[in-house]
Amino acid sequence: MSDQPSRRDLARQFIEALPHCRALSMAVEDVGDGEAVMSMPYRENLVGDPSTGVIHGGAVSALMDTCGGTAVMAHPAGPTSTATLDLRIDYMRAATPGKAVTARAVCYHVTRSVAFVRAVAHDGDPEDPVATATGAFTLSGIRS
């Protein structure tokens, strides 16, 4: 996946400049054909349950949504823009307090106007996910 540093650098530059992604300190770890890996460090202000220190599901959603959009933009079909149409998130378990969350999204199918995405988020062990997501994204700029 790492054989295209230029694309990864471009995605990194683009994503990491978005205000909300900066606010959550999201980082692009890797970008491949229709695929993206992003991480988000643990921070006190993302906590949703102060009695346990577990981060809010909404922060995990934001990471998965961004990662999904990045995977769509990285699809070989070459879309020029995308937006989320719908996103379903399943929460498997609470993310471990203190640990960064990493999401991997795959854009597994595109038509001329829709992209279909799956994503998994974990906090260290990809085999023990925190959450999974499926989504449909709009797609524009595809030549038919």
Binding site: H56, G58, A59, S61, A62, M64, D65, T66, T84, L87
Partner: peptide
Amino acid sequence: LHGGVTAAFLET
């Protein structure tokens, strides 16, 4: 608005 913000707002 970021889609993730909207998601977090609705869930909250």
